[in-house]
């Protein structure tokens, strides 16, 4: 019985998590750590009551909206670019270095510039999020599109099928596992992007709330915001995983079906 319980996948991580919380709580009390340095878990819990539930929801929704919009644009734009990169050597030689340069630009540093150019509205925040979420998606899609077994491409050529069907019926489905590993990285990066954009310019959103709370030295509520952010990130990541499991079960490694 004890064996069975311990072998369940969630039990061990949960136990260690609870243990850390308890140690943290005890340490915070025993050493009387001031809450602006490291608030105890119970203090963070109290931090949630600093603002009303509706206000929390507003913050979460604002961040979620920006993250999902940036993520959406990243998907929509990376698909044609990846197809182009995979199909044309010329295009990949022309574009790839450019993409690497864009990727190497620290988005946190460009964010203020983008805000000045695009204003403090959603557009700027979505662009910032997009810039962070876009690159891993293009790379994984391109890799996936090129990972098709050459024999299938030969089969396709010998059938003299229209070129687009080689993409839709062979290359794209073959890329699905790659695309999903890209999507999983990209969705968590999108949350980071949204928060970064809110640090720079926003009146609402979890990023804005954390920034605002720390500037007032209200650390417990800043931590509460952080907890929400982690939860949001995890839920989005799991949603992408779930989508893969439901829509493309064959694309998962055997033991995880």
């Amino acid at each position: 019985m004890k064996q069975r319980l311990l072998s369940m996948p969630v039990v061990l991580p949960l136990l260690s998590f609870v243990a850390i919380l308890i140690i943290w709580e005890l340490a915070a009390r025993v050493f009387a750590i001031p809450s602006y340095i490291l608030p105890a878990p119970t203090r963070i819990l109290q931090g949630f009551s600093a603002v009303s539930a509706e206000r929390w929801l507003e913050h979460v929704w604002a961040t979620l909206r920006i993250a999902l919009s940036g993520f959406g644009f990243a998907i929509v734009l990376s698909l044609p670019i990846a197809v182009g990169l995979a199909k044309s050597r010329l295009l990949s030689r022309a574009l790839y270095p450019l993409l690497v340069v864009i990727q190497s630009v620290p988005v946190v540093a460009v964010a203020p510039i983008i805000i000045v150019v695009l204003g403090t509205g959603d557009a700027a925040r979505i662009v910032i999020t997009f810039m962070i979420a876009f690159f891993p998606l293009v790379v994984s899609m391109t890799t996936g599109l090129m990972a098709t077994p050459p024999e299938l491409i030969e089969l396709s050529r010998s059938l003299r099928a229209p070129a687009y069907r080689q993409i839709t019926q062979i290359r794209l489905p073959y890329a699905v596992p790659y695309i999903f590993s890209g999507l999983k990285i990209s969705i968590t990066l999108a949350v980071i992007g949204a928060v970064v954009s809110e640090f720079v310019a926003a009146q609402v959103g979890i990023g804005y709330f954390i920034q605002f709370s720390t500037s007032m030295f209200k650390l417990p509520q800043a931590w509460a915001g952080l907890v929400l952010l982690v939860a949001l990130s995890l839920i989005l990541f799991q949603a992408v995983s779930l989508a893969q499991r439901l829509l493309f079960p064959w694309s998962l490694p055997k033991e995880r079906r």
């Binding site: 077994p149 024999e151 030969e154 089969l155 010998s158 699905v176 064959w250 694309s251």
Partner: peptide, 11 residues
Amino acid sequence: MVFQQATLLPW
């Protein structure tokens, strides 16, 4: 054509 690996469509 038959190849060394069956190269079927996994989906």
